[in-house]
């Protein structure tokens, strides 16, 4: 199958980055600054009060720093490579996606996989440094670590689909900038990057339960810091898996419609 032979498409993002050292330096700087800021912010907040929303200082700092690191996984400069759907629609180069014996959805998935693996290397490096420096705590047990890894993988999978939906919007509207900003904001807020979700009022938590964003970061990180006990992990993993399935079906539908649209407009 072409998708297997075309694994090299997964190298596009990492190679592009490796060919631009300034971008990597900037990435390193951005990550360092964010981690330092987030860590000192939460330490400062906890200096006044003890335990808030059932979480002590180290747990909160760990959560926030891990969220910052995890976001790097899929938060590179997507536009640098001119290989986003919006750019292909803009430049008219989307036609080439439909001119190859590799389905656009397969190509997209390979590209995203490479991008996420590359981002993962960054996140893991950052994690190792933070762990060594004592900024984040190690997981409480091997079981917690195992469940976390599983949940984080599912979370990334959900993240992939969320990004995909945003990208797919571009097949219908050339200006998805606003949608992108709203979605990125919603994603950051609801997946617990700005502040862990338990700090929000109940109605907000309930509402966000209907959106996929909790499944991306909030669940795996809550498992990691112990806010969600291991006994509840199974249910949470199931919810994440359900999101994966639902979004997989939905995006499949969108791919089909996108193809129909391209084929009816000629790119």
């Amino acid at each position: 199958m072409a998708a297997v032979h075309a694994w090299r498409a997964a190298r596009v993002t990492p190679l592009g980055e490796l060919h631009s050292p300034p971008r990597m330096t900037a990435e390193l700087l951005r990550m360092t600054v964010q981690v330092v800021l987030v860590a000192s912010l939460w330490r400062g907040l906890y200096a006044a009060s003890g335990t808030t929303a059932g979480l002590d200082r180290d747990q909160a700092v760990t959560y926030a720093v891990l969220a910052t690191l995890a976001l790097r996984v899929r938060n590179l400069d997507q536009f640098a490579g001119r290989d986003t759907v919006i750019q292909h629609m803009h430049f008219g180069t989307i036609v080439y996606w439909y001119l190859r014996p590799l389905a656009p959805q397969r190509y997209y998935a390979l590209r995203a996989l490479g991008e996420q693996l590359y981002g993962l290397v960054w996140a893991l490096a950052g994690y190792a440094v933070c762990l060594a420096a004592g900024v984040v705590q190690p997981p409480k047990s091997a079981a917690v670590a195992g469940v976390f890894v599983l949940s984080a993988l599912l979370g990334q999978w959900v993240m992939y689909y969320v990004m995909l939906v945003i990208d797919q919007l571009c097949f219908w509207t050339l200006r998805n900038g606003a949608a992108m900003l709203i979605l990125i904001f919603a994603q950051n807020l609801l997946s617990g990057v700005y502040a862990p979700l338990w700090f929000f009022p109940d109605w907000f938590i309930t509402m966000s339960g209907f959106l996929p964003f909790q499944a991306t970061l909030s669940v795996p990180l809550s498992l990691y810091v112990g806010r969600i006990p291991l006994s509840d992990a199974g249910a949470q993993l199931l919810v994440q898996a359900a999101w994966v399935v639902a979004l997989a079906l939905f995006t499949r539908l969108l791919w089909r419609r996108a193809a129909r649209r391209v084929i009816s407009q000629g790119g």
Binding site: R8, H19, S20, D83
Partner: peptide, 18 residues
């Protein structure tokens, strides 16, 4: 591929077309 050396593009296409 905008960000890559041309030869990489050739290699990607080689794989896609097997």
């Amino acid at each position: 591929w905008w960000d890559l050396p041309v030869r990489e593009s050739f290699a990607i296409l080689r794989d896609i077309y097997e």
